[in-house]
Design a protein around this nucleic acid. Sequence first.
DNA 1: AACTGGATCGTCT
DNA 2: GACGATCCAGTTG
Length: 188
Amino acid sequence: MILPRAFFDRPVLDVAPALIGATLLVDGVGGEIVEVEAYDETDPASHSFRGMTPRNQAMFGPAGHAYLYKIYGIHFCLNFVCLPGSAVLIRALRPIAGLERMQARRGTVAEKQLCSGPGKLAQALGLDLRQNGLPLDAAPFEVRMGAAQEIVTGPRIGITKGLETPWRFVAKGSGFLSKRMENPSGAM
DNA sequence: AACTGGATCGTCT
DNA sequence: GACGATCCAGTTG
């Protein structure tokens, strides 16, 4: 079933683990979500920590919409907005649909390299700022519920603040992660 | 396997 | 004017 906007209209720490195992497609291209991170306004690593700005306004908009931003001047990252000021960063997929399109966009055929990181994933799915603020329950997006998964939690990747907060969620044993889980803090 | 530096630019200090 | 929710190629061990 397609995840309704109401699915996202609750605490980001509830939504993030529930997304592991879900299917994300953009124009029919994508796969199973195997890695996410949670961010909220109480969190110094979050874009929303210092309040709303032109860049992050989608993060304060309605739940169930996309927040996309450019990072390091080069890459784009996709988030699912939850309660105001909170969002789930989608970090990795297990490719399922549209392999050829993803391979063409990424310039590689190795399946494990297609969506194993937020920038790679955005590139493979053809995402950029044009999708910022779009609803997740309408074209080109399609987010479908998946079966419950075994989940491991731990510290988030690539941040300098908030390292003590274990808000990274990955599918246990997945071979499609951006990085292996270094300091797991729990399982679900 | 682990670590390095370079690419490149919008955002906020 | 510095830096970042990243990726890649290159080097070293």
